[in-house]
């Protein structure tokens, strides 16, 4: 079992939205960044892993287990973190921790105390009065202290200040330190994802746009600037997306595998300059392209 999570042909239909067929592969021991514009289906996909909603097709395997048949087993081994989790009804931080702690034999009290201190969460703090970021940290603490094999985080950094954000990622890196644990994180803060995640999957409109090792994905694409006197203009094609055009001067996103420098030259492009992209640039370019279509 080299993959922590395998999603194959997952389909979920809503009146106004269709997820999938979606394939995702999260390798074991990795931090996997799931990115996509709002409404792409990230939360839906994550919810389905935890059995919140019924799939309309396809399969989800977590640690080799079928997500429907081994629901409780999976939940024993995988933890979920999201700002949507509501612990307010527990009143105090300590009570919420005590409740969750009872479910997990692996619960690490010492680590829990360390995290409480690191996150500034006292057991007597009232949850209703915690800031948004502190609530998020509580959710993260409850997930980390159970030492899960898989940690699934849905938008864990929304509303966190930069210091807290770095703290969160530092804990995540610590969590995967032994190479056995896996983190799946959906987030909009792409510079963080680029820095901390090993793998990346980008979804849009319920479909996977690209997936792979972070460095390979980012390296594959370039921002190209070139001039062309060619009468037949460049059109979008697989691996080539026109971003801007001013007369004979072009800006395009190119996939070096299919539409690199050589291809551009054969099409009569001159003065080609290729620039590296950040994940964020890549994201914006790919998402915009979809919208143009």
């Amino acid at each position: 079992m080299n993959n922590a999570i395998e999603i194959r042909g997952l389909v979920k239909n809503y009146p106004a939205f269709k997820l999938g067929p979606l394939d995702l592969t999260v390798p074991r021991g990795a931090i996997y960044g799931l990115i996509g514009p709002n409404g792409a289906g990230k939360t839906t996909a994550i919810d389905l892993i935890f059995g919140m909603g019924k799939t309309d097709g396809g399969e989800i395997r977590v640690l080799g287990l079928n997500h429907q048949r081994a629901e409780v087993q999976i939940k024993q081994r995988a933890a979920y973190v999201s700002p949507d989790l509501n612990f307010m009804v527990w009143g105090k931080v300590g009570k919420a921790i005590r409740f969750v702690r009872g479910f997990y034999p692996n619960w690490d009290d010492a680590y829990c105390a360390t995290l409480m201190k690191a996150f500034g969460l006292s057991d007597t703090d009232k949850i209703a009065t915690l800031s948004f970021g502190a609530k998020m940290k509580l959710s993260l603490l409850l997930a980390l202290a159970r030492r899960p094999e898989i940690l699934i985080l849905d938008e864990p950094t929304t509303g966190l200040d930069p210091v807290s954000k770095q703290q969160v990622f530092a804990e995540l890196l610590k969590a995967v330190e032994d190479g056995e644990r896996t983190v799946l994180i959906s987030s909009h803060s792409l510079s963080d994802i680029e820095r901390f995640a090993d793998h990346v999957g980008m979804i849009k409109n319920g479909k996977l746009l690209l997936e792979g090792r972070m460095d390979e994905v980012v390296d594959r694409f370039r921002m190209a600037e070139f001039f062309s006197e060619n009468k037949t203009p460049f059109h979008n094609r697989d691996g080539f997306i026109v971003l801007k055009r001013n007369e004979n001067r072009w800006h395009a996103l190119v996939d070096q595998k299919t539409s690199g420098q050589d291809w551009l030259q054969t099409r009569g492009a001159e003065n080609i300059s290729l620039t590296r992209l950040t994940l964020e640039d890549l994201f914006v370019a790919l998402v915009k392209e979809e919208e143009v279509k």
Partner: peptide, 23 residues
């Protein structure tokens, strides 16, 4: 948060005792 700004810092005791559904 403003309404009840009183926080009691420094008590980072990890809770113990039975938890889960019985709790």
């Amino acid at each position: 948060g403003i309404q009840l700004g009183k926080r009691t810092p420094g008590q980072y005791r990890a809770p113990s005792g039975f938890g889960g559904m019985p709790y």
